[in-house]
Design a protein around this nucleic acid. Sequence first.
DNA 1: CGACTTAGATAGCGAGCACTCACTTTTTAT
DNA 2: ATAAAAAGTGAGTGCTCGCTATCTAAGTCG
Lengths: 208, 208
Amino acid sequence: MTTAERRTQAQRREGTIGALLDATVTCLATRGYAATSTAAVCAEAGVSQGALFRHFPTRQALLVATADHVATRQVEAFRSLGSPGVDSADEVAAVLGHLRGLVLSPVNQTWRELLVAARADDSLRAALHPARESLQAQMLGAAADLWGDRLPADDLAAVLSIVVNMLDGLAFSALDPDPTAAPGRTVERALRLLAEMIVRHYPSQEHR
Amino acid sequence: MTTAERRTQAQRREGTIGALLDATVTCLATRGYAATSTAAVCAEAGVSQGALFRHFPTRQALLVATADHVATRQVEAFRSLGSPGVDSADEVAAVLGHLRGLVLSPVNQTWRELLVAARADDSLRAALHPARESLQAQMLGAAADLWGDRLPADDLAAVLSIVVNMLDGLAFSALDPDPTAAPGRTVERALRLLAEMIVRHYPSQEHR
DNA sequence: CGACTTAGATAGCGAGCACTCACTTTTTAT
DNA sequence: ATAAAAAGTGAGTGCTCGCTATCTAAGTCG
């Protein structure tokens, strides 16, 4: 640690803010909303509480900033799926499996934790509202880019709603602390069945 | 208040315990887990904190007792659906709508709140585990009684998993404080589409 | 350099939390 | 009737929380 001791103020600022946001993500994902106290976040980030309250006027401001932070990362992860085929049930099932991985990721866990907390907190709900709308629109846009040529727009939104809501529901039901635990027989069967139902309802043009 | 002033000890006990359980349900459903403090529950129930801690050694014990309380009420509500037809897409959509109502009810909201809190609390998760298993088994059994003659057992569990997980996911996403708010266009479309996919995948015998 | 602004550290404050305890009231048993 | 037991009360206890005030360290600019 002999070099690069000198940083500009903007660099210092960005560094600690980034550390605080990342620490908030890991605290929310591992300890949950209630246990994500300012002290816990500061300990995780390796800074003092004074530093936190210099950059964020209140705990809620930190949480809202974290929500915006993870929202952008969510669309990135979704788009980084590439453009997988959805012609056969196997391919759709593979896509569902990948989506399940995304939904179970810490980033998405953070997002869910904030949404749940927002239900009982009016001002947090209001503060999270724009990010929520933006995220939904961007996810729908990404889905349209990937598969918009196969489904009418209304149906695409409906299928997306079915899939992500089911995966979110699964994430809430999966209380195992180990995120890579065996998905369970019925869960695998349910995903497989959903894939089959989708391809049967929207057969690809080649097979017609 | 001139009559019936005399109650046996068992009656008094049952009365206050019932009031505490009901108060816990409404507190969890309206204020959320974190705001369901012992003081809030006692105020809602109209008893003192001393009374609460006479019957429940700790806050967690009260919450676990409440979980058992609502679990039984959930199966009752599910079975009270009767035995609706599931031959046409319209009928399946109607069933999905009724299920949606059940999932959005305060009883189910309470259950979800406890499950979410259990994710970050090891001992609460362990204490809730038996009720969780029992509830899942009873729901599957009820579903088998209602529609077991139409689907193989494995498929029934898978369909049930898809439907209830999607509805739970919807309940988490629906942050509106008004539970009877307009379901939203895409939600209605998604439920309708899911109903159509189900009847297409499992056509009734008569239409074969 | 030296005045000035920004970033970060530390101690502490008031509020709310789960829980306890000494006490009163109501039911039960003799 | 009266003693014992159970139910219920409400003030108090220690602890953690979000947040603030005060201070030191570091970067900026004449």
